[in-house]
């Protein structure tokens, strides 16, 4: 498989800085949604080139096929070797179709789980990169167990005996994101979003019309800042002014730095400590009255 270069699009993107790039302006949730889906926004294949080296892609779920909406394999960041797994949306129409817009099917989640277990075998920390509108809502996906594949990943990730870092680089679309997202650290780029349902989907159910998506986006509290305040995520990686698409190099260097720091801090724990911490982390999720 060929990982496309991002060079041309960077040049193009630099000329297309969004209007609200001043540091002081407050960006609305809906504007953040648009930045997170920006056609020139760096995607996993860009980070594979700019943050990681020596990527060895591994294919297939050993049961049905190879889902190209999820990429995975051995990779190196600095001197640290890791297992890298993530959604890949593609950059142009051809790639979008080839990658199903980053919407994975059961075989994608099952490949991801296979690689996580491989990481455990090789004693490598896992980095998962999240960027998907959601798991693929199709007939064959249901037929092959979309729900089961996501459920299994979420469950088994609780017991994976190596550190897991999950980074949302664009869209964190519901169960399709969480299916590779049960990390010891959950990180987000500052213009990424993470949501239980797409703002359009939520609007069409609760507002009875998808055109209320901006209201739904606001109400759902899907921005990195809101999620940090609600103790869902651990850290925000700051994007260049105007968004990640305006400066690939700067974005890549920030991601590199933050991933390495988190990998280092997670390397200090025993397996038992790590799994206890992970259990406590997810046990503490949510707010309710008692």
């Amino acid at each position: 498989m060929v990982v496309a270069t991002g060079v041309k699009v960077i040049e193009k993107a630099k000329k297309q800085k969004l209007s609200h790039n001043s540091k002081t302006s407050k960006v609305s949730a809906w504007e953040t949604v648009k930045i997170s889906r920006h056609p020139q926004r760096p995607i996993l294949q860009d980070y594979i080139q700019k943050v990681f080296t020596n990527f060895v892609e591994l294919h297939g779920d050993r049961a049905f096929g190879d889902d190209t909406a999820i990429i995975g394999g051995f990779a190196q960041i600095g001197n640290q070797k890791v297992m890298l797994i993530g959604h890949n949306k593609g950059k142009n129409t051809t790639e979008h179709i080839e990658r199903n817009f980053g919407m994975a099917k059961p075989e994608g989640y099952r490949k991801a789980l296979r690689l996580m277990k491989l990481a455990q075998r090789f004693n490598l920390p896992i980095v998962t990169i999240i960027d998907t509108p959601g798991a693929f809502p199709g007939l064959e996906a249901e037929e092959r167990g979309q729900a089961e594949s996501i459920a299994r990943n979420i469950t088994e990730m609780a017991n994976i005996e190596v550190p897991i870092i999950s980074l949302v680089i664009g869209e964190g679309g519901s169960g399709g994101a969480l299916g590779i997202g049960v990390g010891d650290r959950i990180l987000m780029l500052s213009n990424a979003i993470y949501s239980v349902i797409s703002p359009e989907g939520c609007a069409s159910i609760l507002w009875r019309d998808a055109k209320y998506a901006p209201d739904a986006a606001e109400a759902l509290k899907i921005t990195a800042q809101a999620l940090l305040e609600n103790n869902i995520i651990d850290e925000i990686i700051k994007e260049p002014a105007g968004g990640a698409h305006t400066d690939y190099e700067q974005m890549a260097s920030e991601v590199n730095k933050v991933l390495l720091r988190n990998l280092k801090s997670l390397s200090n724990y025993s397996v038992a400590e790590l799994l206890d911490m992970r259990f406590e982390k997810y046990s503490a999720m949510g707010k309710f009255a008692e």
Partner: peptide, 26 residues
């Protein structure tokens, strides 16, 4: 399914409940 009115807090209940199941499995 998930309760939209609780946003990602609701989504994370999937991981929370499955963490409980994972301990039973073990």
């Amino acid at each position: 399914g998930a309760r939209m009115q609780e946003g990602v807090l609701s989504l994370m209940q999937m991981a929370k409940t499955c963490a409980g199941v994972a301990r039973l499995n073990k």
